[in-house]
Amino acid sequence: MISYIVYNYFSYSGAASQAKKLASSLGRHNIIFFNVITNSKFKFSKIHVKDDRLNFSVINIRGGGIIRLLQFIYFFLRYKVKLVHLHGFHRDALISAYLLKKKILLKSTLDGKDDFDTLLNGKSKFINRFLLSKITFNNSLTTQIHNKNIQHSLTVPIDKIPNGIHCPTSNELMEEKQRIIIIVGAVIPRKNTLLGIQFFKDVFLSRGYKLFIIGPLNTQNSEGDEFYSRECMESINNCEHISFLGNLTTEQLNVIYKISRFIIFLSKSEGMPNVLLEAISFNITPIVRDDDLLSKSLLPKDTNEFDISFYYENIESAEINALKLIESQTLILHSKTYNIKVIANKYNEVYLKYFDL
């Protein structure tokens, strides 16, 4: 049995969403999810539940400290887990796996949070070094994370496997693009939603575009900021060209992707921006921060045509370039690199080589 350890399986979580996509594409029936519910107290009800839509078994892990640790130990034994696949640095699960001598795959998901450089320079650096030395394989999600992880003298195999997306079919790409711009993601300070709204007002509002803001308004995690959410909502009041659509299903989001021309993506930090990959697969031109090296590394070529400053200074040229880019389908072709089927094959190779699974 392979266990996938994630935060907030049933709510808004990019890492959990990516783990579900991967598990659905591997062609395996031996995966069980452990859902770590943050800021929750332990209770005996609804521990083992079923995700009927994806047909996965999910173990809800509540509480903290020794309670959480004991739950991992018990369920790893009960379900005869052989591989613990951590989607992020879950210390309690990692300790439990080590104590039970389980093989461990750690996916480093967020630069500045769970890369080795950050983990080995924080307040728990000594225990983190010990735990990291016990993992079997590390997937450093991005070039930035990979470059940090390989600097440390840990005898751990390290590779870089990106996130994957479900690429749309040719029929799904037939709809005509409209003068629609999107911002996708939780309305939180890290995502820079407010800056995106202001940019739209400054550059695109007078040119007949509409802005759709898609994502949860009040996230139930440490990044939630009620004041910031209120500030964002106040900024769109009385503006008929801006609509807040809230959290959409994948199917609903795809409908919007099909007709959108631009995506404003100004996040301050990301593991790997899944929405950006999804957007380019639907032939949507991205607009990113000038200094966002991660997002730029995922785009087809090294150019300033996606920079927010380029749009501020050359909106007419930027629009023409975007239309040419859409017509060329360069973004669509480039996005196939991140097809979840390709990524799943890479993981299956890792499972076989390092874990004999």
Rank of each mutant, 00 (worst) to 15 (best):
K191L: 08
K113M: 05
G208I: 09
T155G: 00
K296P: 02
L195A: 14
L333S: 06
D111T: 10
I165E: 01
G196I: 00
P168V: 08
Q144T: 11
N139K: 04
Y74I: 10
N247M: 14
S206R: 12
P286D: 00
L299I: 10
Q71W: 07
T143C: 05
D51M: 07
H87C: 01
G112R: 08
A97L: 02
K41V: 10
N345E: 13
I2T: 00
S57T: 05
E175Q: 14
S229N: 11
E251D: 10
F75S: 05
N238E: 11
I326H: 12
K43A: 07
I59C: 03
Y74W: 14
I343L: 03
I165K: 00
F33C: 03
E175P: 02
N128S: 01
L331I: 09
F75Q: 05
S229H: 09
N304M: 10
D159W: 09
D159M: 07
A344R: 03
R190T: 08
L70T: 00
N171Q: 14
I256P: 01
S153Q: 11
S206K: 15
I315K: 08
N238Y: 10
F130C: 09
G122H: 05
E278N: 08
F227I: 15
S57D: 15
G224D: 01
I104D: 02
S243W: 02
Y354R: 07
V288T: 06
I214Y: 04
L54Q: 08
V255Q: 11
M233Y: 04
G215D: 04
F126W: 12
S3Q: 02
A19Y: 01
K353A: 12
F126L: 13
D52E: 12
C239T: 13
E172R: 11
F306P: 02
L352G: 00
E240Q: 15
E223D: 15
F116N: 06
S235A: 14
I259N: 03
I5V: 15
I197Y: 06
C239E: 15
I32S: 03
L119A: 04
T285L: 11
L333I: 05
Y9S: 03
V36H: 04
E176C: 02
K80N: 13
I135D: 02
G215L: 08
Q71L: 11
K210T: 10
V84A: 11
